[in-house]
Amino acid sequence: MRRLTEVPLIRKRETVYAIASVLTALLISMACLTGPDSSPPPSAPWDPVDSAWKVIENLEYAYNTMDIDLYMSCFRDDFEFHLLWYNPHGCPAIQDSFWGYAEEEQIHQNMFEVVHAIELVITGSQESPWTGDSTGMSLQLPRTFDLKVYLDEAHTEGYRASGSALFICRQDTTDDQWYIWQWWDLSDTKEQTTWGALKEMFFY
């Protein structure tokens, strides 16, 4: 009966170390070939707008880039902007409490053509069903904002508004896209102006 030859323990360890070294070198070479995933995470502008929060991010992006087409694509045809009644600049009110899609478009066409730059930051992630819609198809998204509109290249002249806003968003059944149906201005009246009053400055 033949006896199995025992391999010394040291030789076994050397073999394991050699295999481990080869595997390590192989993994390093593969990493060098592929490299780390340095692609930026997805961000606005979103297309398709398949979630309510994406339409708010598109609105923020459109303001900062002063893109009127992207901005108006955020709204339903029956859109309403509801004013917080505060008018320190004496601008005539367009309506008693709200205006619609056409006025919103005219205001922002004028604004984006005249101002030099806009800085808008919208924060918040909360969303919940809006009880004001009997169909149960609308979501309310409360947000806080900080808006700066600069009239000159040096960014020394302009207006600032901040505070809160409530966006009522609804998904369109024809294209499954989300749009802003109603926008309620809840600006901080301690600031220089409100978002609604700032908009009214560009209605002419």
Results as ranks from 00 to 15, higher is better:
Met1Trp: 07
Arg2Lys: 12
Arg2Gly: 10
Arg2Ser: 13
Glu6His: 09
Arg13Gln: 13
Thr15Ser: 08
Val16His: 08
Ala20Asp: 09
Ala20Gly: 06
Leu23Asp: 13
Leu26Arg: 13
Leu27Ser: 11
Ile28Met: 11
Ile28Phe: 08
Ser29Phe: 12
Ser29Glu: 09
Ala31Asn: 09
Ala31Leu: 15
Cys32Gly: 13
Thr34Lys: 11
Thr34Trp: 11
Pro36Gln: 10
Pro36Leu: 11
Asp37Lys: 14
Asp37Thr: 12
Ser39Met: 13
Pro40Ala: 08
Pro40Val: 11
Pro41Gln: 14
Pro42Arg: 05
Pro42Ser: 07
Ser43Tyr: 05
Ala44Glu: 10
Trp46Asp: 12
Trp46Val: 13
Trp46His: 13
Asp47Thr: 12
Asp47Asn: 15
Pro48Met: 09
Ala52Thr: 04
Lys54Ile: 05
Tyr61Cys: 10
Tyr63Cys: 02
Tyr63Gly: 00
Thr65Met: 03
Asp67Pro: 01
Asp67Ile: 06
Cys74Gly: 04
Cys74Tyr: 02
Cys74Val: 05
Asp78Ser: 13
Phe81His: 04
His82Arg: 09
His82Lys: 08
His82Cys: 10
Leu83Arg: 06
Tyr86Lys: 03
His89Ile: 04
Gly90Pro: 02
Ser97Asn: 12
Ser97Thr: 15
Ser97Glu: 14
Ser97Val: 14
Phe98Pro: 00
Trp99Cys: 04
Trp99His: 07
Gly100Pro: 05
Gly100Gln: 05
Gly100Val: 05
Tyr101Gly: 03
Glu104Val: 04
His108Trp: 06
Gln109Trp: 01
Asn110Phe: 00
Asn110Tyr: 01
Phe112Ala: 01
Val114Trp: 01
Val115Cys: 01
Ile118Lys: 00
Leu120Arg: 01
Leu120Val: 03
Gly124Lys: 01
Ser125Arg: 09
Gln126Ala: 15
Gln126Ile: 12
Glu127Lys: 12
Ser128Ile: 08
Thr131Ala: 14
Ser134Arg: 15
Thr135Gln: 11
Met137Gln: 14
Met137Ile: 10
Met137Asp: 15
Ser138Pro: 07
Ser138Arg: 10
Ser138Cys: 14
Gln140Asn: 10
Arg143Thr: 13
Arg143Gly: 06
Phe145Ser: 02
Phe145Pro: 00
Asp146Ala: 14
Lys148Leu: 04
Val149Ala: 06
Tyr150Val: 03
Leu151Glu: 06
Asp152Glu: 10
Ala154Cys: 07
His155Lys: 15
Glu157Ile: 01
Glu157Met: 05
Tyr159Glu: 03
Ala161Trp: 04
Ala161Lys: 02
Ile168Trp: 00
Arg170Glu: 05
Gln171Phe: 06
Asp172Ser: 13
Thr173Val: 07
Asp175His: 03
Asp175Asn: 15
Asp176His: 13
Asp176Cys: 10
Gln177Glu: 15
Gln177Asn: 15
Tyr179Pro: 04
Ile180Asn: 00
Trp181Phe: 08
Gln182Ser: 06
Gln182Pro: 02
Gln182Thr: 08
Trp183Phe: 15
Asp185Arg: 05
Leu186Gln: 09
Ser187Arg: 00
Asp188Phe: 03
Asp188Glu: 07
Asp188Ile: 08
Thr189Pro: 05
Thr193Asn: 04
Thr194Lys: 00
Gly196His: 01
Ala197Met: 03
Met201Val: 04
Phe203Leu: 06
Tyr204Glu: 10
